[in-house]
Design a protein around this nucleic acid. Structure first.
Length: 105
DNA sequence: AAGGTGACCGGCC
DNA sequence: TGGCCGGCCACCT
């Protein structure tokens, strides 16, 4: 049980407020490894076991739901977001910058 | 131990 | 806005 990279990602993702979203790169930057954005995605891929990691609130820099195929249903990720009041059209978050949450450490 | 992989990003056109 | 390209680096064989 140490603090590895994955665990830090989970801790930060858990901080994302309800109804807000952030990006892989923003998380990586907040962790101090701005160039490890790909690892953030990988970490979330491994977060399937965990129940309290809101991975649906993490999208890419363009606001696209690039990870939707890793959720159970074809549109589970979109439904989760819409249930939080976030509009999603064509796999993209509407008014992304307005819903964006900047990770703070 | 070395190489492959990826839910990305930034720059450029 | 969209597409392409190169770099990135922790994790897994």
């Amino acid at each position: 049980m140490g603090e590895n990279f994955f665990e830090r990602v989970y801790i930060l993702v858990r901080q994302i407020p309800y109804g807000r979203v952030t990006s892989y790169g923003a998380i990586a930057k907040a962790l101090g490894t701005a160039r490890s954005a790909r690892m953030v995605g990988w970490a979330l891929n491994a977060s399937h076991n965990l129940e309290d990691v809101p991975a649906h609130r993490v999208v890419n820099r363009k606001g696209l739901l690039s990870g939707k195929h890793h959720f159970e249903g074809a549109n589970l990720m979109q439904q989760l977001l819409e249930s939080e009041g976030i509009e999603v059209v064509n796999n993209q978050i509407v008014d992304f910058e307005n819903h964006f949450w900047k990770p703070d450490f």
